[in-house]
Design a protein around this nucleic acid. Structure first.
Ligand code: MN
Ligand code: MN
Ligand code: ZN
Ligand code: ZN
Lengths: 152, 152
DNA sequence: TTCCAGATAAGAATTTTTCTTATGTAAGAA
DNA sequence: TTCTTACATAAGAAAAATTCTTATCTGGAA
């Protein structure tokens, strides 16, 4: 997730055939800034409101929805139920920690390849697959510490 | 999903150390009857209300939540966001059809084994995994027809 | 510059979920 | 059987999450 300036953000929006409005730019910027945090619309709104007093919560919902529809961001589901968003559209998975209610990125190219390969071999009749997502649920043992993996 | 009579349902509940109240029995019965349908609380409520006029929506939410907490049923997340439930607790995956908003069972022992094996090999530090779930998103080509797989 | 399709603000409305509290009941004890 | 009590429920209020409506505004094309 490299830092993008406003002009680059603007171009990213245009490349998805979305009008590069101020609200869309700041929402996208906020999401990129919150990489790995997976905020809900409400959180994005709270973050933007001070510097953008005229933005409305409804607009934030709308924008996130449009972004997701256009593949600019990903929707991630929390065990709690509310929709959360992720500006990282690269193939990766998510861990939901029941303790802290965090959604943690789980980046494992080996897993993605394994699944990619599996679904390529599987021949699904009458279904056009757009994407797959895998989510783990469990608990951090030490809620303050990171989750990490070791390959055997 | 074999047909269970009320006495058997009662025992299933008791075996999860849940009191076998009338409401719990009818909710569980409804879920079993709707195998493969993955209803939301609201739908279970609508189904039960006519024969159980005194049941309340809040109670249905509570019961489904208690069931999921005790592993009697599974929570499945829809792309839309609302929680849906599945009485089939066997390892299986789900397909979300953006067209019809259906959640379709995707039973593939080979996939389950593949993932089971993967996570057994992966050593995750500071995280106790409870479960994993994989969901596909896409569209049925012929909305009325079934989705099926052919192994190559 | 002008124009207008489409985006936004604001707040109402709806939907989904949780909470509260008085009441009811399953199941074990007497 | 009757009593007891811990736990479950009903009902509706409340809260949280999301969508809708409409008047107004604006980005970007021409
Ligand atoms: Mn939230
Ligand atoms: Mn629903
Ligand atoms: Zn992520
Ligand atoms: Zn299922």
């Amino acid at each position: 997730m490299q830092q993008l300036n406003r002009q680059e953000l603007r171009q990213k929006l245009v490349s998805c055939s979305l009008k590069a409005t101020h609200q869309r730019i700041v929402v996208y910027e906020a999401l990129l800034g919150l990489h790995g945090h997976h905020p809900a619309a409400e959180e994005v709104y709270r973050l933007l409101k001070p510097a953008n007093p005229s933005i409305s919560l409804g607009t934030v919902y709308k924008i996130l929805d449009v972004f997701a529809e256009n593949g600019l961001v990903r929707r991630v589901f929390s065990e709690q139920g509310c929709k959360r968003y992720d500006a990282n559209t690269m193939a990766h998975s998510h861990i939901y920690c029941s303790n802290t209610r965090e959604i943690i990125d789980f980046e494992d190219p080996e897993l993605e390849e394994l699944l990619q390969g599996f679904f390529q071999r599987r021949n699904m009749q009458n279904f056009e697959m757009h994407s797959f997502a895998i989510q783990l649920t469990g608990n951090k043992k030490e809620p303050d510490q990171q989750v990490s993996i070791t390959k055997l």
